Simulated assay, not measured.
Amino acid sequence: MKNTILHKANTRGHADHGWLNAYHSFSFASWYNPERVQFGMLRVLNDDTVAAGMGFGTHPHDNMEIITIPLEGDLAHKDSMGNTEVIKTGDVQVMSAGTGIQHSEFNPNADQHTKLFQIWVFPKYRNVTPRYQQITLDITEQKNNFAQILSPNAEDAGVWIYQDAWFYLADFDKNFSKTYYINKENNGMYVFVISGTITVDGQEIETRDGLGICEFNDLEFIATSDAKFLLMEIPMEQ
């Protein structure tokens, strides 16, 4: 029997700092909701807009898998491992923070905001050696498909992390349908709609809604409008 939890877009935490307009699907910073701390091993899903020329100063992380997906614009990244990169729309970046890293993230453009998702996943192993990975996606693979962008396996498509998780991006035409089959028994799924409207096993979710599902083997996705969405298959327990 599937269990679901619906997080409507307007129930998310919100913080507008001027330079940063942030929406939190799960408790983050000054926004705390005891019923919205995490979904399984998914700890943070932040939907951020960074003003032109602004960004996050150097700050630390440890024992977390940190995934960044730019949606519009670019993000300049610098870290204590010596990486200096620009993450562009269509890229995906991951850091395994492990024993500890420090990094900064800035919008390098003077005339354009940057929109991004930052996602934190609890790792399977603690205190690993920190690592960095960044790739450019072939966005054509997302058209009417679940295009894998993350997995536990370095040899698979996308980036990899220290957790039994699989992420996909999808760009469905209206009325297109496709069935998703779970990768690992007892994992859950958190679906986040980037734009448009879809149904997941009959449950309608709209732009910026999140839907958590557990105790399933397969799920039917139908686009009721043109729709882009992110699928995150996540262990429910460590």
Rank of each mutant, 00 (worst) to 15 (best):
F117R: 05
D62Y: 12
A22C: 10
H77V: 01
G13H: 00
E204P: 03
I139L: 14
L219S: 00
N144H: 05
Q93C: 11
D226Q: 08
D48Y: 00
V86K: 11
W19H: 08
I101D: 09
F56T: 00
Q238E: 13
N109Q: 11
M1H: 13
G98N: 07
M232Y: 10
K8I: 11
M54W: 09
Q102D: 13
I67M: 10
T84N: 13
Y180S: 06
D218V: 08
G73H: 10
P235G: 03
G196Y: 01
A76T: 08
L150R: 04
D62F: 12
H14M: 08
T136H: 15
T199N: 02
I66A: 03
S177Q: 12
P34E: 05
A9C: 02
E215M: 10
H14N: 09
Q102M: 13
P123T: 05
S30L: 15
K178L: 14
S225A: 10
D164A: 05
L6R: 05
V44N: 06
N183L: 00
H103P: 02
S151L: 06
I66R: 04
Y32R: 12
F167Q: 04
I69M: 07
F39R: 05
M64N: 07
T197H: 07
F176D: 06
N144E: 08
Q163G: 08
I101V: 13
Y190A: 00
V191I: 14
Q38D: 11
Y23P: 02
L169Y: 12
K124A: 12
V191K: 00
G158D: 01
P70M: 00
F167H: 09
A170V: 00
F39H: 05
N153G: 07
G98L: 10
G13R: 05
S225T: 15
T89N: 14
L219F: 08
F146V: 06
G202F: 00
G100N: 04
N109R: 11
Q118H: 12
G212V: 09
E72D: 13
L45A: 03
F229E: 01
N21K: 13
W31R: 03
V200P: 03
V44I: 15
T49A: 09
D47Y: 01
V86Q: 10
N175V: 11
R36M: 15
I66K: 06
V92H: 00
G212P: 03
E72N: 14
A51P: 02
K2R: 15
S30N: 15
